[in-house]
Amino acid sequence: MALVPNMPQVWRQETKPHKFCPGCGHGLVLKTLGECIDELGIQDRVIFGCDIGCSLLSYDFFNVDTVQTHHGRTTPVLTGIKRARPDRICIAYMGDGGGYAIGSQHLVNAASRNEKITVLLANNCNYGMTGGQMAPTTLPGMKTETSPYGRDVEQTGNPTQGPEMVAAITPENAYVARGTIANLRQLKRMIKKALETQINGVGFSFVEALSACPTNWRTNAKDTWHFVEKEMTQYFKVGEKKVPPEKEEQ
């Protein structure tokens, strides 16, 4: 038998190599998500929604029903699907531009209504697909296409703290965390807990993953890791922000 790569079983092999740039963090986040879907055995129940931005390049990524929606609208579309089919596991996948800028109202309202869906957001500090413009998550002083002298916090504010915001507005049975592609085992535990929160019908679940965009950051592998591990973590603290209270053992 021909040797095949060790991909998560839910990955569609015939669409690989996937469409993300070399070294892109989206691949790592979706690999981790794939492993979680495999281990929870939920492939036939998952509905995956991807946003506009580079996350849309995952429209043929998984062997599950997939929908691609307008910018930032993945959260309400998946909310609708979940309400119509509560037995499905709905995962909305987006970038930081989609979640925190163009679609922030959707994230905020889905979170405060405690919708029983999972939102997974890749934070790469810029608008990747459109060529690396400044995003709400761009670090202070970071140079992008639209902040060529570095982000000026006096004029444009500080980086959006997504999980902290979601944790503040969700009821106590939600799951909210920030992981990073620099610690994939931890990220996997977080995504798994988020999916379990939805599977058990407990509440809203949200995981932000610190991701990388080497193409627009113009970084080589060494600088990419440095940026994710040392620069981003100065503003974005990795960890669980809200965990549903454990059910009492019977």
Binding site: L3, P5, K16, P17, C21, P22, G23, C24, P214, N220, A221, K222, T224, W225
Partner: peptide
Amino acid sequence: FTLFTSICKGCGLCMEK
């Protein structure tokens, strides 16, 4: 050690890690 050349994009993340 197996490397699948038809999907490796040469990003170099592995070398650094």
